[in-house]
Amino acid sequence: MSAHGGEDSVLVQGVARGESSALEALYRRHSPRLYALLLRMLGQGADAEEILQESFVDVWKRASEYRPTRGAVEAWLITIARSRAIDRLRSRGARLRLVREREQQAPDVAVTPEPPDVHAHTRLRRALDALPVEQRRALELAYWDGLSQREISEQTGDPLGTVKTRVRLGLQRLADLLAG
């Protein structure tokens, strides 16, 4: 979670009032992490830039809908960006085949990365490593490849009900591990 949660909420209120400077401040603060997320999901190319742009235009239009009781601003921004990225992935078609192909390739290398949050990295890695392999796999297919539970079932050959259980328990367990 961002260390600037309270300030972020105030900025979103400013955006809701039509303050473009507040939108720019939010962008400066959060766009590097969102862009990294979109690059990882969509790969290099114009898609990540387009979705980043669309996401912040969305923030401009929907700022009044933000509710602090439903999560921090950073989580809200990630939800908006991922939702648009998933739509883009689904519009590409033949996604399951592309997922299989990508799994056989080396991971993308981010351009000009800034130093990662080492503490968060270690904590997340430890938490993911503690999950059962099947749960972790289901979460990764949903998170990075934008697969629905039905598509994960098709991809892995596991029954849909099993996939649903893995997604649910996996995210709950991850939440517990990250909070612990």
Partner: peptide
């Protein structure tokens, strides 16, 4: 809780300036 856990999954990415 679910959204913040989902957001945490991106916490180990190295930020990239757009």
């Amino acid at each position: 809780r679910a959204q913040e856990t989902v957001a945490a999954l991106a916490s180990d990415l190295s930020p990239v300036q757009p």
